[in-house]
Design a protein around this nucleic acid. Structure first.
Length: 578
RNA sequence: GCGCCCGUAGCUCAGCCGGAUAGAGCGGCGGCCUUCUAAGCCGAUGGUCACAGGUUCGAAUCCUGUCGGGCGCGCCA
C-alpha cells in the first residue's frame, strides 16, 4: 500500500466528519520523530478560512483520527498541527501482507496504465560511447525499469544517431584506408580511425570533400552499394555498443535510429507547410513561432526559427524528431514519450513539443533533462584525457572495476582475492551507477573517482552490503522463507523505526516513477539500509526464541527484498554475499 | 538581445506540492569488535539557506529586484 495517500484520505475524511467542511489534509511525514510519524497540517489554513481557533478545530480532527485502527495516537501540537503515531499492531499486519506478496512486495500498480516510450542513451553510430552518454543511459534505464514496475507498458527506444553527413566521409574513407580485418576485430575503433583521417583530408582537399558529399547523396538516394556499406557500419557498431550495454545491464525494446524515419521527412515538411505552420525563409523551411496563433508567449518571443529543412534541401534532427513522435503515436498508440536528454537541449524540445501541439498531437511529451558531467575543475568533463586520448565509457567502466577490486583487497576489507574478483563488476559498476542515481538528475554532476568508488556512507556498495548481510542471516537461520507470513511484532525502537521505513517503499517508487526521479528510490534505500544496520546492532535474530525470531527474520526478509527490489529498479546488482 | 538553470555545513549534495529547533554523506574530533559481516554503530562539532524587499498565522521553499556562477538560442545533433 501507499502510506501517504492512505493517511491523507483518512485525514481528509476526519476533517470532513469532524468539521463538516471540505479541506485538504496536507499530510506530511514529520521532520522530527519526537513529533510522531506523520502530521496533518491542513487544519491551520482551514482555521484561518473559518476564522476559528486552530487548536480547537485540530482537537476535533484529532479525536476522529485517533479512532482509526491505523493510528495509535493523534495529538494537537504547536499552533494546530495534528501529530499522528502509527499503530504498531496495524503496521505489523500491513508488513505481513507485503511479506506474502512476493511479486510486488506490497507495491500497488498504477490505476491507469499508459504506453510510454522512453527515449534514452542514443549514441552516434561509428563512435565509441564516452562519459557524455553515461547519464542518459543510466537514468533512462532506471526510469524505464521503474515505470514498467509500476504497471506501465514501456518501450525503451535507443534513438541512434545513425544518419548524417559523417557517412559520406566514412564511405570514401573506408575505400581509401579501411581494413575489413580491423573492422571485424574492433569495429568502432576502426571506424573512428578512418573517420578521423577522412575528416582531416576533407578539410584540406576539396575534391575529397566533394566526393564525400557525392557518396552521401548517393546513399540518401538509395544507392545499393553505399547502403550496404552503411548497413555494415551500423551492424558492427551495434555489436560494439552492445558490449557496453551488456556490462551496464541495459537493454532496449527498440533500436530505431534516425535512419528509420528517412522516408517520412519530406512528408513532415509538406504537412507543416500545408497546415501553415512552416514557411520558406532564405531558402530554408522554418517555423516562426512569433507568427503563429496561440503559441506559448515565451516561444513566440524567440526570434530564432525552428528549421525543418535546410536551404540545400537536407533535413535536420528537428524533422526527424517530428517524424519520430508521429511514428510513436501511430505505431504504438503511445500515451507518452519521455526524452532522457541533456538539459541543455531544453530549448529544442520546447520548440519540438510546441510544433507537435500545433499539429494536434495529444501525446504527452516530456523532456527529462539532466545536468552535465563536470570534471574536478568544475568544467564539463572532457572526453579526452591529458594526452589527448579519448576516454571511452568502456575504459571508464574498466577503471571502476579495477578501483573497486583494489579497494576490496585493501584494509579494512581485505577480501579473499577470489571473492573480490567475482564482485568487481557488480560493485564497481554499481557504485558508478548509484553515485549518479542518488543525486537529483537536474544538478550538474561532479565526476570524482573517490566519490564514485566510495564504500562508506551513502554509496552503492553500502546498500549492496546491507543486502548481503540480510541474505547471510536468512541463510544461517535455515528458515523456510515461504513460511514467514507474519505477524510481525514491533517492540524495540529499532524494529519500529525499520518497520516505518519499510512502509515507505511504495511511495518512494511511485514518486520516482511520477517525477522520473530515480534518486527518490536511492534515498529510500539508503534510509532503509541505515535502519537495517541499527536494527542489526540492537536486535539479535538467530539467538532469540520463537515467535520473536520469526518476526525478526520476517523484517530481515522484507528488508532484503526491498533492497534487492530498489537496486534492481536502479539497474544495480544485489549480490548475495560480500 | 531573448530564454533557461543554479547559489544550503570545510567539500559533495538532499530538502524547494510553504509548516515546528534546516538534513545526509565525506573530511575532522571522541567512543564501540570473545556476540548473526566494524563496508558498521553511538556521540559531539559544524550553516546570516547569496543579498534585499514582498505575500503569509508560518518562507530555504512562492513573487519582485540585486549580485555571483553556468547554459541555450538559422541552416550541427
Amino acid at each position: 500500500m501507499r502510506i501517504e495517500p492512505f493517511l491523507d484520505a483518512i485525514a481528509a475524511a476526519a476533517i470532513h466528519d469532524a468539521l463538516d467542511v471540505e479541506a485538504p489534509a496536507i499530510l506530511r511525514p514529520t521532520s522530527d520523530a519526537t513529533h510522531g510519524d506523520y502530521q496533518v497540517n491542513g487544519v491551520l489554513g482551514l482555521a484561518k478560512r473559518l476564522k476559528q481557533n486552530p487548536r480547537e478545530l485540530a482537537a476535533k480532527v484529532a479525536e476522529r483520527l485517533a479512532a482509526h485502527e491505523a493510528i495509535a495516537s493523534a495529538e494537537v501540537a504547536g499552533p494546530g498541527f495534528v501529530n499522528l503515531r502509527l499503530d504498531d499492531a496495524w503496521l505489523g499486519r500491513v508488513l505481513g501482507d507485503a511479506l506474502v506478496d512476493r511479486d510486488r512486495d506490497g507495491v500497488p500498480a498504477v490505476e491507469t496504465p499508459e504506453t510510454i516510450v522512453v527515449d534514452f542513451s542514443s549514441p552516434n553510430i561509428a563512435k565509441q560511447m564516452h562519459v557524455g552518454h553515461l547519464r542518459s543511459t543510466i537514468l533512462g534505464d532506471a526510469i524505464s525499469r521503474t515505470l514498467r514496475f509500476v504497471g506501465h507498458e514501456v518501450i525503451g527506444d535507443n534513438h541512434l544517431g545513425d544518419w548524417g553527413t559523417q557517412f559520406g566521409l566514412l564511405i570514401v574513407g573506408m575505400r581509401e584506408w579501411g581494413s575489413d580485418e580491423a573492422l571485424a576485430q574492433d569495429p568502432i575503433v576502426e571506424l573512428e580511425r578512418v573517420y578521423k583521417l577522412a575528416s582531416a583530408r576533407a578539410g584540406e582537399d576539396e575534391a575529397f570533400a566533394a566526393s564525400a558529399r557525392a557518396e552521401l547523396a548517393k546513399l540518401q538516394a538509395g544507392d545499393g552499394e553505399n547502403h550496404a556499406l552503411w548497413q555494415r557500419f551500423v551492424d558492427v557498431s551495434k555489436s560494439s555498443l552492445n558490449l557496453v550495454y551488456d556490462r551496464l545491464g541495459v537493454t532496449f525494446d527498440e533500436w530505431l535510429g534516425e535512419s528509420a524515419y528517412n522516408d517520412r521527412l519530406a512528408g513532415v515538411v509538406e504537412l507543416l507547410r500545408e497546415k501553415g505552420i512552416a514557411r520558406e525563409d532564405e531558402g530554408a523551411i522554418c517555423v516562426f513561432f512569433g507568427e503563429l496563433e496561440g503559441v506559448d508567449p515565451k516561444l513566440a518571443k524567440q526570434k530564432v526559427p525552428f528549421i525543418v529543412q535546410k536551404g540545400d534541401g537536407a533535413f535536420l534532427y528537428s524533422t526527424t524528431d517530428i517524424a519520430t513522435v508521429l511514428y510513436r503515436r501511430d505505431r504504438w498508440e503511445a500515451d507518452r514519450a519521455i526524452y532522457v536528454v541533456d538539459k541543455r537541449q531544453a530549448g529544442h524540445f520546447a520548440q519540438l513539443f510546441e510544433v507537435m501541439r500545433l499539429l494536434g498531437v495529444e501525446m504527452k511529451l516530456e523532456h527529462v533533462g539532466f545536468g552535465m558531467v563536470l570534471g574536478d575543475d568544475g568544467k564539463p568533463k572532457k572526453t579526452r584525457d591529458a594526452s589527448g586520448k579519448v576516454e571511452t565509457l568502456a575504459s571508464l567502466l574498466d577503471e571502476a572495476e579495477v578501483r573497486a577490486e583494489a579497494k576490496m583487497l585493501e584494509e579494512p576489507l581485505a577480501l579473499d582475492p577470489e571473492v573480490a574478483r567475482s564482485l568487481r563488476a557488480s560493485v564497481g559498476i554499481g557504485a558508478v551507477k548509484y553515485a549518479d542515481l542518488m543525486q537529483n538528475r537536474t544538478s550538474d554532476y561532479t565526476f570524482a573517482w573517490d566519490k564514485l568508488i566510495a564504500f562508506t556512507g551513502n554509496a552503492g556498495p553500502y546498500i549492496q552490503y546491507m543486502h548481503a548481510r540480510c541474505c547471510s542471516v536468512l541463510r544461517k537461520s535455515e528458515q523456510d522463507r515461504d513460511a514467514l507470513t507474519g505477524p510481525i511484532t514491533l517492540e524495540h525502537d529499532a524494529e519500529r523505526a525499520l518497520a516505518r521505513q519499510l512502509l515507505k517503499l511504495a511511495d518512494a517508487i511511485h514518486a520516482a516513477a511520477e517525477a522520473s526521479n530515480p534518486h527518490y528510490i536511492a534515498g529510500h534505500l539508503y534510509e532503509l539500509a541505515a535502519r537495517v544496520s541499527v536494527f542489526w546492532e540492537h536486535c539479535p535474530i538467530l539467538d532469540v526464541a520463537a515467535p520473536l525470531r520469526e518476526s525478526r527474520l520476517a523484517l530481515a526478509d522484507l528488508s532484503r527484498r526491498q533492497l534487492a527490489r530498489g537496486l534492481n529498479l536502479l539497474g544495480i546488482d544485489a549480490p548475495d554475499r560480500m
